[in-house]
Design a protein around this nucleic acid. Structure first.
Lengths: 200, 200, 200, 200
DNA sequence: GATGAATGAGTGTTCATTCAT
DNA sequence: GATGAATGAACACTCATTCAT
């Protein structure tokens, strides 16, 4: 309500951005609260006014990431395109996200790792996130089949393959930015997905 | 006459196995040298008779992993199969590796993360590893085209897609073992790869 | 308004004094950071807010010692005395320093030892320190000759002898405080130096 | 009695020599039992067949040093020289000892330091050693006075000055080998001692 | 609200010493 | 006697967290 209220949110976000930057440079484990504080231009104590612990910053960063991703999707997918065009957009978007913001990609990696070893971290719910994403893709695939763009026997499995290949590409890309074509990666991938490599 | 004598190689391996187990349970960062020691049934000091540092255990574990993988490949791929049959074998093998040895999979994840933030760790050379793997796949794909099993315009890119999808699947699998069919995953994937999803 | 604020210089000095005390009681090598901390009445971590490492405390202590010595010299030597009177003052001062502050003497010993085995420790530059001291003495001796108080063929060598005898006395003194007269040591030494022991 | 007996003594000495070498290179505190063992060409365990502890090696080394020094004195001082000639010899000998055997000099330094902080170490009895040495010098000075070579009011104090200057010179020499003339140091020092620097 | 000095539990690593062979 | 693998106490240093101001 009061202008202070806004400031608080804002300050919290500043710290979060700083944290994400630091995480992405050194990885979560090598990132010190001190680093985050000085990057955010606040004192170390201040961090603890906005976050409970170092780990909670990671969790908040994850939420932040998810929000951004969802936002991007919402902004892009509304259009009146065919299902396969929308799949194309989704792939494009995913890669763009990472290309434009390698920072988040690397941090996501740490999220993932953290959630793997702490499957109970309530906030780092990758299963849920991918579940939602899978549902979205399944709907898309079903729509595409409906309109005759593709055929799919097992849409869930196919959706999983799609998610796997996107994540795999991202992972490899982070490791070595040169192995995938920058320009038309999505096109190439779409072709791979739709046509396969069998002779016909 | 002879003093307390020990097969140093063997002891080293025991410690390494213990380390890999501990790593896979807690992740590298949360794994204490003490944990490794007690898991291996030796004292902390003994660890340092066989390894220079905690990090060097990680590197050794990576080498260990790579060796096992290479061994598995060498044992399997000699056969007189068609190129695509051999691709099938490779995929099968990769998944089997992880299924049989989730431990290593999780640790590999930490390797990957570590190498991302320390691109100069000489031993954690994922680029080289994947480079070799890509070459192998490219040869395979070219062979397959030669014998008319498939068509490939850009074998290197296709190989990259293949590696990406395998790693992506593994990653997702580690996160949630239920999302992929245990029985015939490789068949399903081969179908996806060869046929694509386009209507025809 | 203002957070817990502390005169950092002062706190640093407190720790330094504590360290020097501990060093002098146990020697540098047997002095634990914990000992210094509890002597200074702070926690171990606090030590590291003011010093980079245990060794850096030693170096700082050396600087501290040098500063005190220089100060003492500056305060004493300005007077309008003859050169030999000033030499007398210098000797007096040196012994007083050690008598009043055995602590520092013992620590100086450790400095010396440390610098012998680490000739490159930049801060523990005994050569430089003694070089400066030698210059000062050479000037003094030359002045003294000029005014006819003494004769010196080789002032630098004589200066070295003087420094050697002062350090030697100090050393022996630290070992056994009883072997030198407390009252008129400087007089006795001056007599020894000026008159020699030859019959005449 | 048995030849083994001889070997044992010999082996012990080998270890001792190795230890002294190692001590002189790195200082006592930085010298590891491992270093001594490998320098001596024996295993670490063997060290403990001949010495109780690392410290006892230092103590034994001190005895070794003292013995050598005494031997050197005994060999040299028997001659039929005037008392002052014998003083000359003693000084010469002391410096030669250090020049020829810097190793021992540096270690002596560590002995000294150790004894300072552990005044109860029974073997490292510098007081006793210097007491004996002082007695020897006092006798010498008295003899010299008797034969009219010198005059001394307080022979003990003079002896202390002599010991102090010798040790001081040695100390400075170890720090910087260039500050004293190599050739005729003893002559120069004798002149300084006998004549003093006063005008006459 | 903000600060930053202080804390102290935690951990990697070392190394003198032991002892089974 | 000799070995050298094993031990584990000891210690320097780190850093998330607290809290007085």
């Amino acid at each position: 309500m009061s202008p202070r209220r806004v400031d608080k949110e804002e300050r919290r976000n500043e710290i979060l951005e700083a944290a994400i930057t630091v995480f992405s440079e050194n990885g979560y484990h090598a990132s010190r609260v001190d680093d985050i504080a000085s990057r955010a231009g606040v004192s170390k104590g201040t961090i603890y006014l906005y976050f409970d612990s170092r780990e909670s910053i990671l969790l908040a960063a994850f939420d932040h990431f998810m929000e951004q991703l969802r936002d991007a999707f919402d902004h892009t997918l509304g259009a009146d395109a065919t299902p396969m065009q929308r799949l194309h957009q989704i792939l494009d978007l995913s890669f763009e996200q990472f290309k434009a913001n390698q920072t988040l990609g690397r941090v996501l990696f740490d999220f993932w790792s953290a959630s793997m070893y702490n499957p109970d971290l309530p906030h780092l719910d990758f299963k849920k996130m991918y579940g939602e994403f899978r549902d979205l893709l399944v709907d898309l695939l079903n729509d595409a089949e409906q309109v005759g763009e593709i055929r799919v026997d097992r849409p869930a499995l196919t959706a999983n393959f799609l998610m796997a290949i996107v994540d795999g590409i991202t992972l490899h890309w982070m490791m070595d930015p040169n192995i995938f074509p920058v320009e038309n990666l999505t096109e190439q991938l779409m072709t791979f997905i739709t046509d396969g490599i069998a002779v016909r």
